[in-house]
Design a protein around this nucleic acid. Structure first.
Length: 569
RNA sequence: GGGCAUGUGGCCUAGCCAGGAUAUGGCGACAGCCUCCUAAGCUGUAAGCCGGGGGUUCGAAUCCCCCCAUGCCCGCCA
């Protein structure tokens, strides 16, 4: 089904590389093509580095290479020491528009790789609602998962549920020992928001009273010794909070295929068997009974002196479990896990586990200059920001539209609001620090989700007003007629989409999708301003095909970010 | 103190890994554009020693070194 000529732009890129490589007699992987600004061509090649081997100055080297090239679907032009490559516009227009119209929501997909990747993200402690700081993880994780699925991978997403750790222990001490009456009012009528108060109060008690800490440690010991009642209490609390977290994520179009509980890894013996293997391989040591990996300041403790397991050991067990079920692993973790990530990688390598996970680290979202903390209650919850975004979007719809039912307005406000939240987080590189600001998070103009959604709604509006059969566009539109500058520029953006998918997956860069989506929407808006479609005398079918194609790609790229594409707003 | 990141116009940000042609764009500011497919849009103007200093190179925002600032980590927590 997928031919070599699946996407014109990728084929063109390959063609340039292989032909230049053969002229220079070098490996085509050593050729790094630039993607220059729009008016300088589709690809560019600086020829400085080839001039030595060719014994010519760079401009002459460029001329020489150009003279030896015969491209299948494009032209090469020399500008000083640079080569600029331009794909034949009619060829690109036909390939791209036909691709969009035929493939629809599958336009942009790359050939199936027959590889399964497990992407773990979120994995937040089930002790309370997700706050905005934590929300960066699922938004990055879900977006990269969607990108990988479009890049041809079989993707499975996982949430590692720490249902027996200290945080849940503290929460459980709270639910066992505290009365509703001694807690503050809850902010939102939602299970995770209600339960977090027990967690916070219990933390406070623990700090004041050493006995509470002992109680909590006792509960954790009991679980290790197989006390099923305590385990049930932990699991119940964990599941109740998870229910709240799941509902929050659902609103952002985020879900996980598999929830793997930490307790299951202890109960089925995998944790203790990993420990045994590590001891047999002599890749760990003991200090007063406690097992550790590594040396000196870098050692990581795997168990307590009492023999009970610690998170690093359990996480190894989890990764081994995952490794047996996939070809690749990708973890999305906060930057506080960097040292843990290095430990994980080296421990798994020494155990001979393959694959070893690749890890996307993201830095934290601060709030008013401080890190958000569930324990201290100093945070803005994800639910709060979603509700605010919905309200803000609703104000905007109310101000603009008087022809819609309240139900429609609510629906649009939800789509726009949730889109804005996701977009504002995903548009920034994961490793960059972010300071949470309401006015930015609720921004509905310029470089934002509504900008892209609006372009989509405009495209939808045009298509809805046309009463012809959309299937006819494929046969009736003569793409050779699309020769105006604004038409070609838009087509070039549409054509670039598969390359964006490829590159975003290759470099684990989800923010590239937002960047691309913005550029595409901007191009579409310019086209919309300059060229009438339904009132075009000569080229109505062609422009309709272009609008339809734009709608397809806008919708597809929004999908990769988990943002809904509205037909009206 | 050590390790790992980040530093781009008033604010936010792309480009950095694989060094090249006048450094992306947004917000805000200012000036314009709705008898015409939704103005959540479009056009234009002002605003930058790409944190600072060295180095490598024909060429550095990009690579190397030093320094400064900020964040994260340095627990038998996770």
């Amino acid at each position: 089904m997928w031919g070599r000529d699946m996407y014109a732009i990728l084929e063109f890129e390959n063609d340039i590389k292989s032909r230049v490589a053969s002229v220079l007699d070098i490996d085509q992987n050593d050729i790094q093509l630039d993607i220059p600004g729009e008016d300088r061509g589709d690809y560019a090649l600086p020829c400085f580095s080839f001039s030595k081997a060719l014994k010519m100055n760079p401009p002459d080297a460029a001329s020489y290479i150009a003279s030896q090239l015969e491209l299948e679907h494009g032209d090469v032009e020399r500008t000083g020491p640079y080569l600029n490559f331009n794909i034949h516009e009619k060829y690109l227009a036909k390939n791209t528009i036909h691709g969009c119209l035929e493939k629809g929501d599958r336009y942009g997909e790359l050939p199936a790789k027959k590889r399964k990747i497990i992407i773990e993200h979120t994995s937040a402690n089930p002790n309370g609602p997700l706050h905005v700081g934590r929300a960066r993880n699922p938004i990055i994780g879900d977006t990269i998962s969607r990108i990988y699925s479009k890049a041809g991978y079989h993707v499975e997403t996982q949430f590692y549920v720490d249902d027996i750790g200290r945080q849940v222990a503290i929460l459980t001490w709270g639910t066992k020992n505290l009365q509703e009456s001694e807690l503050p009012e809850y902010g939102l009528d939602k299970i995770d928001h209600k339960l977090v108060r027990y967690y916070q109060k219990a933390n406070q008690r623990m700090e004041e009273d050493g006995g509470v800490l002992e109680d909590i440690q006792g509960m954790m010991r009991d679980i290790e010794m197989g006390n099923k009642d305590i385990l049930n209490e932990f699991s119940t609390n964990s599941e109740r909070v998870m229910e709240g977290i799941r509902r929050s994520l659902e609103r952002l179009n985020i879900s996980h295929d598999v929830y793997k509980t930490e307790s299951s890894l202890i109960l089925d013996g995998s944790v203790s068997s990993v420990m045994q293997r590590m001891e047999e391989l002599r890749i760990c040591d003991r200090d007063e009974g406690a097992l550790y990996f590594g040396e000196g300041d870098d050692r990581t403790f795997l168990t307590r002196g009492s023999g009970s397991s610690l998170y690093p050991l359990r996480d190894i067990a989890y990764h081994i479990w995952k490794s047996e079920r996939c070809d690749e692993m990708l973890d999305v973790l906060g930057e506080d896990h960097k040292v843990h990530g290095a430990f994980l990688t080296s421990a798994l390598s020494e155990l001979g586990v393959k694959p070893v996970p690749r890890i996307i680290f993201h830095s934290f979202v601060s709030f008013q200059g401080e890190r958000m903390s569930t324990r201290k209650g100093s945070y803005v919850t994800l639910d709060d920001i979603m509700n605010m975004a919905h309200e803000k979007a609703k104000e905007e719809v109310l101000a603009r539209r008087d022809d819609l039912t309240m139900e429609d307005m609510e629906r649009i406000a939800e789509i726009v609001g949730m889109g804005a939240v996701r977009y504002n987080i995903i548009r920034v590189q994961p490793e960059k620090p972010m300071d949470f600001k309401w006015e930015e998070a609720l921004n509905l103009q310029g470089n934002s989700a509504p900008f892209v959604q609006y372009a989509h709604a405009r495209a939808s509006g045009i298509m809805e007003r046309w009463d012809g059969d959309q299937k006819e566009l494929l046969t009736k539109a003569d793409t050779d007629k699309l020769t105006e500058e604004g038409e070609i520029k838009l087509i070039k953006k549409l054509a670039a989409y598969p390359r964006e998918i490829r590159d975003a997956a290759l470099s684990n860069a989800p923010h590239m999708m937002a960047n691309y989506a913005y550029q595409l929407a901007a191009r579409f808006n310019q086209f919309y301003r300059d060229y009438p479609v339904l009132k075009a005398e000569e080229k109505m079918m062609e422009r309709l095909a272009l609008v339809r194609s734009s709608k397809v790609v806008l919708s597809n790229v929004l999908w990769t970010m988990g943002i809904t594409a509205p037909d009206s707003m």
